[in-house]
Amino acid sequence: MGDLTGLVGLLAAPTLETLYMVFFSTLFATVLGFPLGIILVVTEKGGILENEYVYRVLDGVVNVLRSFPFIILMIVLFPLSRLVVGTTIGTTASIVPLAIAAAPFVARVVESALKEVDHGLVEAAVSMGSSPKEIIFKVLVPEALPSLVLGQTLTVINIIGYSAMAGAIGGGGLGDLAVRYGFHRFQTDVLIAAVIVIIVMVQMIQGAGNALARRVSH
């Protein structure tokens, strides 16, 4: 077993890379997925802006994206990564496929959270003369906030998992470290240390998510 400071030194940069990838992937996945989820909810049957055509198209797109295995999606999206970031390897490049893989997941999370909101509340809001925009942002989103927080927690944890996979094909971060040292050089201690860091990360995010969800529910 290598000395502890050496190990910490080895882990520091990949940990930061993972955090960087996860943070920005979550951000972009949310920017894409959140509106998508809202559109799904309002256009579905019985929704406040029911539109069968829009719903079926978006629903199909989300399903197709979600059924791609991530590794395949990443390879398929290489050209897009090159277009956006200029390269297909490195942490910044892997943010593109990560965000696109997670966006439909976010959309489903948002959709199911908003669908849980009691229809009676929407009805009361409609009876008061609320516009669709008011119903979305003053009723659906605030009422679903605890579920949204828990759903986003799940999204972040999923992205951590995917980011490790991205690392394996040149994405950097803890996954990359684990593969390079643990798999190619048989340095099991580095592999274990990388896994432990990931576990701690997941635990902290889940804990923070639970605490936040509790705070926003009344």
Partner: peptide, 15 residues
Amino acid sequence: KKVGMIFQHFNLLSS
């Protein structure tokens, strides 16, 4: 806005 409505299950915003 000029026609108020009340419901059996109140339908208040819990948030």
